[in-house]
Amino acid sequence: MKSDIKLITDEGKRLDGRGPHDLRKIKIEAGVLHRADGSCYLEWGGNKVLAAVYGPREAVPRHTQNPLKAIVQARYNMAAFSVEDRKRPGPDRRSVEISKVISEALEKVILTEYFPRASIDVNIEVLDAEAGTRCAGLSAAAVALVDAGIPMRDIPVACAAGKIEGQVVLDLGKEEDNFGDADLPIAISPRTDEVLLLQMDGHFTVNEFNQAFDLALKGCHTVSEIQKKAILEKYQSVVAEVQE
């Protein structure tokens, strides 16, 4: 889709004042919900996302159980009021797809073989949306899994890169997502740089793709540091509480 909106100014700034390689502002807090086994609240630019983890618990219905390992069920859901035009509540094709790719990404890092017949449920609620909700959701889910004490090989993290006005940029904003040329969200295991999730739409040359991929990878590592800081803060607050 083309528009008259100029996405990059002559000074090389983007609509929200960022440079091409800048992330939006990210804030992460672990352990925000009372009932959940683990939870996380994440703000990423205009996105506001809550994630809660339940489990490992017995998988129901029974036929979904795997006798050798746990199943991972992520459920991505958008609040009706999170978008410009009200979204009808409940799952649609888009959220079913996103739930599936996030489940698969998380399953790769969770030590599922420790919990046969169990299910690990990850609920992701998008409360306010502004482009890049799946990356925000996955990154929040990862922190919630750590908060729930689920054994994992690594803390997964996601970030997107894209192309606007022929230029490769990090972390597309709202207008950039609507009117940009391409979008590439990825999730990785930051210790090994294994790719856990990768989607692309739009138009990249191979060269541009490589640029965008490297940029997204760099973005992932930046977000990963913020995740670890949030987890550390949670642990420290627990330690302080115990010492009291």
């Binding site: 994630a51 809660a52 859901n77 609920n123």
Partner: peptide, 14 residues
């Protein structure tokens, strides 16, 4: 409309 999303309780289902 009210949504009892499974995030809120181990007993809520989607």
């Amino acid at each position: 409309a009210a949504e009892f999303v499974p995030l809120a309780s181990p007993d809520f289902e989607s």
